[in-house]
Design a protein around this nucleic acid. Structure first.
Ligand SMILES: [Mn+2]
Ligand SMILES: [Mn+2]
Ligand SMILES: [Zn+2]
Ligand SMILES: [Zn+2]
Lengths: 153, 153
DNA sequence: CTTCCAGTTGCAAACGATTTGCATTTGCAT
DNA sequence: ATGCAAATGCAAATCGTTTGCAACTGGAAG
């Protein structure tokens, strides 16, 4: 009763607008808006999944063949430091990213397909908080991942 | 001078696990008990922390300088496949291991010291189960990690 | 107690993901 | 338009981990 999938952002090619755009954030932070960054930011804005660096690179190369993988890594690091994206390290694999302005949520990873399903449980969040309190800790962040497969029948 | 199977009663050491020993498990699985494995297994049996491969290697080399890091990795993989140890990948860092026969628990990682504190919440476990149910999934395993620092105050 | 060989080892080279050094561009403030 | 720090592409380097291979056992059979 208290879990729900979080609807994802825009589908289609809704370039900018919506919430505060990445470019706006960079500008505010005094970071240059370069051509490769524009391409990457657009890809991230349009992404409805949780792509890894290589996947972002593949999509970027289709738009501008001269973009380097290193630039994707550098840009993702920069966005993470800015707090504009979140980095997830699911089960050993490469880091995957997602826009940071969605509401907090946790993930269920489909072991067969690799699909990532988002969910949120306020009750779990509270319990985590309570546990940290009891242990005398302030939680900075946490990670809750469920790994499973579609229920057979 | 070798009688059949001398019962391996505790050698006066603190045998922290009151469960089936690693060597017993290997034997049952038909896996050879070699000199380097004995060293590693003893280290794991005595460990009360969550050491990574390099740390296990360091401890092993003190006992037998000829042990190779590759052997540590191979042995840990084998133990994981056997289900004798659990592998954790906390926040980007190298994989850390722990004996698998402790009760299930989750971890709080101290961001300042790297210390790992164990905790368990049956209520959270239930909620996870409930969420997976609602999403139509069977959970194979999960991962709940809290990252924080000792409460200043 | 020997023999025997598949399992195991040490070593180095290979790996995949990510980072970094550096010479060359480029954004953008002046 | 100009100047220069910031950013880029490329290659080489790092890090944790895995793997190929020849040499070396564990332990079952004799
Ligand atoms: Mn997500
Ligand atoms: Mn533990
Ligand atoms: Zn959460
Ligand atoms: Zn748990």
């Amino acid at each position: 009763m208290n879990s729900k999938t979080v609807p994802n952002t825009a589908t289609g090619q809704k370039a900018s607008s919506a919430h505060r755009s990445y470019e706006e954030e960079l500008r505010e932070a005094g970071i240059r808006i370069t051509k490769p960054r524009k391409v990457i930011l657009k890809i991230l804005t349009q992404a409805s999944d949780h792509p890894d660096a290589m996947e972002i690179f593949r999509r970027a190369v289709k738009v501008d063949a001269s973009i380097a993988l290193a630039t994707v890594y550098r840009t993702m690091k920069m966005l993470e430091d800015l707090g504009a994206v979140h980095r997830h390290s699911f089960e050993g694999g490469p880091a995957r990213f997602e826009n940071a302005d969605a509401e907090h949520h946790d993930h269920l990873i489909d072991l067969d397909t690799g699909d990532v399903i988002e969910f949120h449980s306020e009750r779990i969040e509270q319990l985590q908080q309570q546990i940290a309190d009891e242990l005398g800790y302030d939680i900075e962040h946490h990670r809750l991942e469920l790994y499973g497969r579609k229920r057979k029948k």
